[in-house]
Amino acid sequence: MRKTLLRMTLRQLQVFRAVFETRSYSRAAEEMALTQPAVSLQIRQLEELVGQPLFEYVGKKLYVTDAAEALMRASSDIFQRLASLDMQLSDLQGSLQGQLNLAVESSAKYFVPHLFAAFRDQHPDVSLQLVVTNRAQVIKRLSDNRDDLVIMSLVPQDMALEFLPFLNNPIVAVAPPHHPLCNAAKLALKDLESYTLLVREAGSGTRKACEEYFQQKRAHFAQTMEVASLDAQKECVVADLGIALIPRHAVSLELATGLLRELPVEELPLYRSWCAVHAKGKRLSPVAQAFLSFIREERAQISALSHRFSGALPLTTTGS
């Protein structure tokens, strides 16, 4: 090993990670409560130790070098090991402490906080860092080893991954309540083809699942409108700009209140499983291990939790 690498400090790596993630010296300085010259000095000293440039400007845009990519991966391992050590020391004291770093597909953001809340009932000293993004970015984060675990469906088959399916992800067709299709007692998927279909952006897991299913069922939608987020997709359906196939978890409130209606399509719901995923061979922190054990062993509790996202109105009782 180069002796110069042993002179790197954790503070230098923290500053480097801030610049790497923000792609900006000024924003990194704000994040680290430093001046911009102090950030520049730390990066310059780190580059001298590494022996290669870490960042370079092209025009006014900051780009990372191959050396920076390698250093980012190594620093992630270092900080994860330190976090794991902290958790293990807490465990030796008789309590599980630390932070669970989760990245989730956007349509999982509706139930994952409730899932974590149930987990924290058992481990009150654990905190959560939650990143919500689309499937394409979740896969990139998996490749970069950015998180303890990711929650996704349609787990990639071309990556060395371990995954634990733990909850059904039913995808349903929805429309505003005054839509003509809502009058039907029974529909086929092909009955939807003459209407505008609102689809998510490329990289969305729901879009990929639906496109594969349409191909399997030989369904073709000539009129589509792309919407760049799940929340915007729901609002477009409410505004009667089209119909959409959306995970039921994501529209439970709209279905329960009558703002949207689930269409009675015989070939739906399209079922996929939510999975907890990590790279094969990854050294999991004690908190991540405990979270996996929780979702493996508390199936009944998770199933009961999922009923809150079924789209049914909660039962109410009245006094006599």
Rank of each mutant, 00 (worst) to 15 (best):
T4R: 13
L6I: 06
T9H: 03
L10M: 08
E30P: 00
A33Q: 10
A38M: 05
L49M: 06
V50W: 00
V50P: 00
L54I: 01
L54G: 05
L54H: 05
K60S: 09
K61F: 06
L62H: 10
V64Q: 03
S75E: 01
S75V: 02
F79Q: 08
F79P: 05
L82C: 11
S84K: 12
Q88R: 13
L96H: 11
S106M: 10
V112I: 09
H114E: 12
H114Y: 11
F116Q: 08
F116R: 12
R120Q: 15
P124R: 02
D125H: 14
V126S: 09
L128P: 09
Q129A: 06
L130R: 06
N134F: 00
I139A: 05
I139M: 01
V150C: 14
I151P: 00
M152Q: 07
Q157E: 09
D158W: 00
E162Q: 05
E162D: 11
F163G: 04
I171W: 03
V174R: 08
C182F: 06
A188W: 07
L189H: 03
D191V: 13
L192Q: 14
V199K: 13
C210E: 02
V237W: 02
V237N: 07
L253K: 15
T257N: 15
T257R: 11
L259H: 12
R261W: 02
L263Q: 00
E266A: 15
L268W: 12
Y271I: 15
C275W: 03
V277T: 07
S285M: 08
A290P: 05
I295Y: 08
I295K: 10
I295H: 11
E298R: 15
E298C: 06
E298G: 03
R299V: 05
A300Y: 02
S306E: 04
R308S: 07
G311C: 05
T316C: 11
T316G: 04
T318Q: 10
